[in-house]
Structures are given as C-alpha cells and as structure tokens.
Design a protein around this nucleic acid. Sequence first.
DNA 1: AAATAATATTTGTATATACAATTTATTACA
DNA 2: TGTAATAAATTGTATATACAAATATTATTT
Lengths: 239, 239
Amino acid sequence: MSEYEAVLPHHSKVYEILRQHINEGVYQEGDLLPSENELSALHKVTRPTIRKALDRLSNEGFIVRHQGKGSIVKGAPKGVGILAMKGTTSAVGKENLQTRIIVEPEIRNWSEAFSFSLSRVEQESGCIYMERLRLVNNKAVFFDITMIPNINLPRFIGRNMENKSLFDVLRKNYRLEVKGGEQRILAITADERLQKYFGVPAGHPVVQLNRKIETNREGIYLYSQVFCNTDEFVLSGNF
Amino acid sequence: MSEYEAVLPHHSKVYEILRQHINEGVYQEGDLLPSENELSALHKVTRPTIRKALDRLSNEGFIVRHQGKGSIVKGAPKGVGILAMKGTTSAVGKENLQTRIIVEPEIRNWSEAFSFSLSRVEQESGCIYMERLRLVNNKAVFFDITMIPNINLPRFIGRNMENKSLFDVLRKNYRLEVKGGEQRILAITADERLQKYFGVPAGHPVVQLNRKIETNREGIYLYSQVFCNTDEFVLSGNF
DNA sequence: AAATAATATTTGTATATACAATTTATTACA
DNA sequence: TGTAATAAATTGTATATACAAATATTATTT
C-alpha cells in the first residue's frame, strides 16, 4: 500500500468516509446518521469540523438534516446536469458496472479535444489519454475516451484504474473536483470500432457526448468523449 | 413597508446583501470582494459567520475564492440542467427558432407516457396532447410531443401556441413552474415520420429524449418526448 | 534595476465554548 | 391510562482564538 495519497483536511476525510459508507450501504436510505457529537467522538474532531463534512453531504443531496432530529440518509444524490457530475456511473447504478481499460493512461499530444478549443498551456503540456469500455451485466454499453491535461498529477500514469471511478481517483488523490462543465450531445451511427465493442451491426445508432468538464483548479479542464449504446440501457439523469 | 420579513440568521443576511450587490453590479465580474476581516468589521459579525455566507456564494458560483488573494466575483451563476429548465430554446438561442404546430393541443387518453409510469389520478384525468416541430434557420431540428395532465388548466385548449414557449405560457398564465425532472436519452434511427420532418434518409441517427418534468404543483408533471436531428445542431448544455 | 528576502495580508483549517430552536423521550400527575 | 409538563438529545447559530498555506507587498541586497 504505497500509493500516493493526498493529505486531506479532516473535514474532507470525514466527508469521504461518510460518502463511501452511504454508497456502500452501511447507512441506507432513511437511516439516521450518528449524531454530530457521536461523529466527533468517533473521528476525534470537533463538532464544527463534523458539521463542515455534513454541510457538504447535505449540499450534494446525500443527506437531509432536521433540527432536533438528526441527519437522514437520502442515498446517492440527484445529479446536477445529466450523467455529468458523477460520470456515467450514476446512470446505471454501481452494481453491475464493470470497466475494461482499452488504452492505459499514457501521455500524448492533443490531436484535438473533440469539439472544444484548447488553451495554449493545455496544448503545450500535452495530455494524459485513456480509453475505457464500460460493461453493464457483461454487455458493453459505454466507450469512453478521456483526456486530462498533463499537469501535476504525480503517479497518475501507472495507477490501476480498473473498476475505479476516474472522478473518485481525482478527488481523493489529487483534490481535483468536478465543478461543472459543458456537454454536447449528438446521434451517430456506429463505426467499425464501436460495432466491434458494442457488438452491433453497421448503421446502428449511438449517442455521442462530448464533454468539457470544469474543475476546482483554475484553467484545468477534463475532456471526455462518450459513446453509448442505448439499446438496452438508456442514459438517465435528473436535473 | 409593512411587508413580512423573516428573521434571517446573520450569515443569511450577509449572503443576501452580497448576492444582491453582485446582481446589481456593486461588485462586478472580476472584482475582489472585501476581505473576510473587512466584511466582518463591516457587518459586525465574526469571520466564521462571514465565511458561512461566502461558502454559500461560492457553492452557487457567485464568487471564486483564492487562498492568500481574496474572493473574486464571477457574476450570476449558470443555469441548471441541460436544455431542460428552459426547454429546447436554450440549446440554440431564441433568435432563429421557429415553431410549427403539428397537432394542436387536444384532450386524449394517455396511451402511455413514453417510458414513465403514471399515477392513478393522472391516468383518470386524461391529458392534453400536442405535437410541435421546431425549426432553426428554416431547417427542422426538433420534433416535440408534449403531454400535460388535464388538470385545472382553463382555456389551454385553443390557446395559440405558435412561436411561444410552452413553459412561458404555463408560468405566466397558470403559475405552473418547472422545478426539475428526469430525462432519458437514447439514439434511434429516423422512422418514416421523422424522415419526412427532418428531410433525412432512412437509417439516419436521431437523438431521442424522454422527459418527466416536475412542477411547483405537487403531483403535477409534464411529459415530453423530443426527437433531435443533430446533423447541423448538436444539443449543448451546461451543468 | 533586478532579483531576493522578509513582512504583511488573506483565505483555509481546527478547536473550544455557549446558547437557541426543534424534536424526541421521560416523568409526573390526574 | 392518557395527558401535560419536564428533561434530554440533536441540529442551528454565533463568538473567540490560533495557526497554516498561499498570495501580495515591501524592504533589502546585489
């Protein structure tokens, strides 16, 4: 276990732990979270620190707080945009989602950033490129191409990304958080590569998403292109 | 001035003041807000209280904070959801958008609400059904089917909807406001009807959106199905 | 004049404390 | 037993304080 771990402030650690516990079902929808005093004893921090973690969970919709009562778990939050804030995971649920790496993270020059324009700094620094195939119930549903500017992400190349959410890795290890972004949606027909991955015939319709994703770091954007076979699984999202 | 004024906590008051000042241009985009210490002196509260107000402004995108530097005003935040809160209009801009009514609003029984399930009340009350074609620069880009539960919308049938936003009509005439909702996206190939409307050959890929839209009235949802020809215009939205 | 170092400013994190407001649980009483 | 009063538990608000981390400013040196 010699992985690079960013030093998170206490309130972020507590947030991550509680968030994970909610996602894993340790606390289920409708459950009461331990009280703030219990949590502060448990994690050995003061109540204001706990409250900061709970504030964030509340803002993001994981919990709802009631004065005099407690914090009630609400399960995974509704996304702000469609299948955006949380990656494609939110669209189908974590259970049966498998990730297969087609192209391991590697450093490339940007050929282009899909339909988005790049800043000079981004172009000069090159990008980390990866391709992933997402399977639901062992059926290929998403094909992702992700491009991240090659700026200050130590040991990212070589990190095992299998079955891990890219956003989770970025948030936990590099404190890089998704803040919002822009996405463009269109319908195309499957090219040869997609026909192979999705096992569909020529002419099969596919949803394509080009996404430029803002982060909490000034000028750092993630770019991703997602192809979706919506035969059996539609893309669903709340707004 | 005999309006009812809720007793707001200090941090909310500060938030409201700063938000209003940003909206009114007292602080303009790019400006530095007064420092937290200055603000606490100004409003006669402590820094944690000021920080709570700034936390919220930051979360909502009004400001961006930089350690050691200050809080920079970012102007009003961006909209929520993709082409959702404001209908399809937001995706292309209002300028060149024309609407052609294919089926005038009429009362029908729900055959189905696309992929969404209906409540008993909704099913029993029937729905107002309409079909519209949206043209951008005289080229058909969207084909909408809209279904609204037939509940308390006097004189809606017969109302001229040409070149009017449905959401605007509902908000202004019936105080029915869109609050959020769910949408499902998939790719299909154009059937004969869409081939005719969009002027595309058989097998042409089309984006389909099924949307269930929440309103400010409990239990009242709008249902819409949108088909998009993304040949020349992609669906774009921020999140 | 330019580069460097030291200082000040500003936001970030964390603790400790106090009391208010709301809900829940307990107790007392009829 | 049922109801009302009381107490306890829990979140909300607010202050005061201290230091860390990042940036900006000023002073010093070369």
